[in-house]
């Protein structure tokens, strides 16, 4: 039986308008990501990495082409429908951690569940387990301003796991960390993949990309090598 890809991009184009100039960020991307894969999307600045990630992560829809999530075409969905999918199926990890500064670690982890209407007790219980999983159970009451870079990124990973998504998308997750801390973060992703999560890391760094089982090289909005 042929496996259905979690994400399938078919001839995806993304064109931005900057004033009068049209910028082609993506030029006909074809890509399939299967359950359990660990993929790195590698490319230099301006290659279209982030745009690819936004499309894979259902944050944006293509100008042209099709995007299938679990076999369902999502390229024509509106913002609220996309938000619903993101909340359930995708977990994001960003370079700048992007935690909500007013909330504690545990509240940040529980936040995605608020939007999925998970009851409060259940939310906090699950957030606690997730923080334990990333080794931060002692820091759950701390605000982001009281945590180190590595700790922030671990909270962010726990948050990405909140609604038990199939796909974890990480955009330069070690970009703001020293190499030792970065390594530990990458080990967490490796472990998550071993546990069955599909992981996609976007990076410019080939050393980081080497952690992945499969590397996709992007240049000028096109895939040049798989």
């Amino acid at each position: 039986m042929k496996k259905i890809p979690i994400i399938r991009l078919v001839d995806v184009w993304k064109v931005y308008k900057m004033g009068d100039v049209e910028v082609e960020a993506l030029r006909g991307i074809n890509l399939e990501i299967y359950p359990g894969e660990f993929i790195a999307i590698q490319g230099t600045s301006g290659a279209g990495k982030s745009t690819t990630m936004h499309i894979i992560g259902c944050l944006d829809v293509p100008t042209k082409g099709k995007v299938y999530l679990d076999g369902e075409d999502i390229s024509k969905l509106n913002e609220n429908e996309l938000a619903k999918i993101r909340g359930k199926k995708i977990g994001f990890v960003f370079q700048q951690f992007n935690l909500v500064p007013t909330l504690t670690a545990i509240e940040n982890v529980a936040l995605p569940m608020v939007f999925q209407k998970v009851p409060n007790d259940e939310r906090l219980e699950r957030a606690k387990i997730l923080l334990e999983k990333v080794g931060l159970s002692k820091r759950k009451k701390h605000k982001p301003s009281e945590l180190s870079g590595g700790e922030l990124q671990r909270v962010a990973i726990a948050r990405a796991l909140a609604n038990d998504p199939k796909l974890i998308l990480a955009d330069e997750p070690t970009g703001n960390l020293d190499s030792k801390t970065g390594k530990k973060i990458l080990e967490i992703f490796t472990k998550l993949n071993e546990e069955g999560k599909t992981v996609v890391i976007v990076t410019h760094d080939k050393n980081i990309a080497s952690y992945a089982k499969k590397i996709i090289h992007l240049k000028d909005g096109k895939i040049i090598r798989r």
Binding site: G57, A83, G87, P112, F115
Partner: peptide, 10 residues
Amino acid sequence: GVMKAIGAKN
């Protein structure tokens, strides 16, 4: 942006 990324609707 983050709120929306993690599933917040408009």
